[in-house]
Computed example of a mutant assay.
Amino acid sequence: MKKIVFFLSFLCSLLGNGQTQSIYSKIDSKMAVMPKSYATTTTGIASYINANFNTESDKVRAAFFWTATTISYDIANINTIDYNTTSEQKINATLSSHKGVCIHYAEVFNSIANQVGVKSYVVHGYTKQFGAIATVAHAWCSVKIDSKWWLMDPTWGAGYVDKQKYFRKLNAIYFKMTPSAAIATHMPFDYLWQFLSFPISNQEFISGKLEANTTKKKFDFESEILKQENALAADKIFDATVRIEKNGIKNNLIQDYWIYKKKELENIRQNETNAKFSILVTESNQAILLYNDFIGYRNKQFKPTLPDDVLLKMIQEPKEQLLKCQNQLDYLEPVNEENRTNVTAVRQNVASVLEQVKDQEKFVLDYLSKGKGARKAMFTKMKWFGIPLN
């Protein structure tokens, strides 16, 4: 009886696959004859799709079909995980060679989907087939079609590898997977991209316990995605690292990705710190230049004479700028030792100059409180038998 059930299940799968392909046969046929001139960039591919299809579903199918049937799996790099090159670099290399591994399929599809007006994201994770966890990380995509989230795997949908040989065979099963179906084989590192109200933990995925545990706190993934879309890059990555850790780091694939995201976060924060620090250095130098202008004017005994308010502004403006820089430097968080050394040096320099500026401000306020004759006397050194009296 078990053999009969398996056979019927397999037959239904084949029928479902054939029915899905027949539904989209017109779209697939149209994409199969797309002129090569469009295929040099994802922008070109997207423009062809936009010109020939109207609905979100049709456009996504067109992007999926082109990606799955045009890119060949790069068996030589089957075990390569590339987190370092940019999306643009991956896409350009793939469109040039028409070869790639999962991340290249995902990046190309994602780029096309977004450019045809469909919200799409690349999802990083790992997979399980026939009860076994894969030893290499995987990448696929999520798309929002008519307000509903679907998972797409253009790599698995393109064909399969057998005995180190790639066989192209379009598989519609991996086009528009529901979140509840996808979780059986595809586990995102970040549970946000499960699109489940009760996300599955890594331990549950590994052990095959995929039923929703409603005793958990319900997860509002829609609100969280909206939050992510409006967050700064560093905040997005920080939140992702928290979710990854919270869901359990149960294998090396998860750990490697978690470490990568933490390093990415550190780099972003370091770049942000460097950018802020550079601005503060520029602003403090500008304040010092203003202060030097004041000293030059004082050395000329405030000649030619300026209105009192202008004179006061000459010393108060650099003071205000230095105070602002000092305050922001105090809140600047260095990421590494080099940052820390540089920030400390500038803090000390700003503090030293600021003390001088404050002394000069006292002099100006005293100067402005006096009459014309007394002001002039402030620049005159009184002597008694050659000894300075002031």
Score class of each variant (00 low, 15 high):
Ser120Gln: 11
Gln360Met: 09
Thr282Cys: 09
Ser47Thr: 14
Gln19Lys: 12
Tyr73Thr: 02
Glu222Gln: 09
Pro388Glu: 14
Val136Gln: 06
Lys165His: 14
Tyr83Gly: 01
Val101Ser: 02
Thr344Ile: 13
Lys261Glu: 10
Ile249Pro: 00
Ser197Glu: 15
Thr305Phe: 12
Thr94Val: 00
Met187Arg: 08
Cys12Ala: 13
Asn77Thr: 10
Val242Gly: 04
His104Cys: 01
Ala76Met: 06
Lys263Cys: 12
Lys26Thr: 12
Ile387Met: 10
Gly44Ile: 02
Ile295Thr: 08
Asp82Glu: 10
Met152Trp: 02
Ile206Val: 12
Leu311Pro: 00
Ser47Leu: 15
Glu355Trp: 06
Leu306His: 03
Leu226Gly: 04
Lys169Glu: 15
Lys246Trp: 04
Gln21Val: 14
Phe221Gly: 08
Asn349Phe: 10
Asp359Pro: 00
Lys383Ile: 09
Gly18Leu: 15
Lys313Asn: 14
Ser278Glu: 08
Val343Asn: 00
Lys209Ser: 04
Tyr48Cys: 14
Ala139Pro: 02
Asn52Pro: 05
Asp28Thr: 09
Phe64Trp: 03
Ser87Asn: 09
Ala233Lys: 10
Tyr297Thr: 02
Leu232Cys: 06
Gln194Ser: 03
Gly208Glu: 13
Asn202Asp: 07
Met378Phe: 04
Glu320Arg: 07
Leu306Phe: 08
Leu232Asp: 14
Lys163Ala: 06
Ile91Asn: 03
Gln356Pro: 11
Pro154Glu: 02
Glu283Cys: 03
Glu88Lys: 15
Ser197His: 14
Gln21Gly: 11
Ala62Tyr: 00
Val310Asp: 02
Thr185Ser: 15
Val335His: 13
Gly386Ser: 08
Thr273Phe: 04
Ile23Thr: 07
Gln203Val: 05
Trp149His: 07
Glu355Tyr: 10
Thr70Asn: 07
Thr185Arg: 05
Pro388Asn: 08
Gln321Glu: 11
Gly100Thr: 03
Lys90Asn: 10
Tyr105Arg: 10
Ser147Gly: 05
Asn247Ala: 06
Ile315Cys: 01
Ser284Gly: 05
Gly248Cys: 00
His138Ala: 00
Asp74Ile: 06
Asp235Asn: 13
Lys381Gln: 13
Thr41Gln: 08
Tyr83Asn: 04
Gly100Val: 04
Arg269Ser: 15
Ile145Phe: 00
Asp330Pro: 01
Lys262Gln: 09
Arg243Lys: 10
Gly208His: 13
Ile4Gln: 13
Val161Gln: 10
Cys325Pro: 01
Thr273Ser: 06
Asn171Leu: 15
Lys216Pro: 08
Leu354Gly: 01
Ile103Arg: 08
Ala345His: 07
Asn114Cys: 05
Phe363Ser: 04
Glu338Ser: 03
Lys30Glu: 06
Gln164Pro: 07
Leu196Asn: 02
Trp193Gln: 09
Met177Cys: 02
Lys59Ile: 10
Ser369Ile: 03
Ala287Thr: 02
Phe64Val: 00
Gly117His: 09
Gly373Asn: 15
Ile225Leu: 05
Val136Asn: 07
Thr155Lys: 05
Ile254Thr: 11
Leu232His: 05
Phe189Ala: 04
